[in-house]
């Protein structure tokens, strides 16, 4: 798995609340059975009209914002469906970081598993970034801080997610090492860990 490094980039502003995973990746693209190639479908219905032409007024279609690795948005980002395809699309498109005042739970977890860093900032800080959308932002996960020009903003992240992103450990291998604990658990809870028919 990829390991998360310090990133410096400008942000793509998307000032909307409650952007749900149906918008991030519409369902017609959930039929694929691989994890790659979803970037071209990111925000599909906002990016393209019914004939498949780019909509000029959508931010991702403005060349000015090309190649930016940070997505800046508002409350409750990623609500709705659990589809991990939403994060696959975001990551495949080139975003490494999403900054918002809050995230939906399942989406947040899906981000961590795919080495996309979700950063929760207070609304005034977010507003500051929206007001200076061309500013260069440096995100240092190790130090848990964002620097933009001369301003430094600390952010919180739970320790397990941080370690996961920095060390890129394979979580399944880690769990499989606990085999004896798992088997013990099963032995001690026979009523629930067995199924009768």
């Amino acid at each position: 798995m990829k390991i998360f490094k310090t990133i410096t980039s400008q942000a793509v502003p998307l000032p909307l609340v409650n952007i749900d995973t149906d918008q991030i990746i519409p369902k017609q693209f959930l039929k694929l059975i691989q994890k790659t190639g979803f970037g071209k479908f990111l925000f599909y219905d906002w990016r393209y009209d019914s004939e498949g032409n780019k909509k000029d007024d959508f931010v991702l279609n403005n060349p000015k914002y090309n190649n930016r690795q940070i997505l800046l948005t508002l409350d409750n980002f990623g609500s709705g469906s659990s589809r991990e395809h939403a994060v696959w699309a975001i990551s495949d498109y080139g975003f490494k970081i999403i900054i918002a005042p809050s995230f939906a739970d399942i989406f947040y977890n899906n981000c961590i598993k795919n080495c996309v860093l979700p950063i929760i900032l207070s609304k005034p800080h977010i507003q500051l970034l929206f007001d200076n959308e061309d500013i260069m932002i440096t995100v240092d996960l190790e130090k848990q801080q964002i620097t933009a020009n001369s301003i430094t903003i600390p952010f919180k992240i739970d320790p397990s997610s941080k370690i996961y992103l920095l060390e890129g450990s394979d979580e399944i291998s880690k769990t499989l090492k606990l085999e004896s604990e798992i088997s013990n658990y099963e032995t001690n809870h026979p009523l629930y860990t067995n199924i009768s028919e």
């Binding site: 659990s82 769990t175 606990l178």
Partner: peptide, 30 residues
Amino acid sequence: DSHTSTHGAFGAFAFGIGTSEVEHVLATQC
């Protein structure tokens, strides 16, 4: 699937997960 919360009606702790977690549960049951 996010609507796994449905099963909570029975007093079960039931919740939706992403595909990476599906893989983790398949491999470890945890």
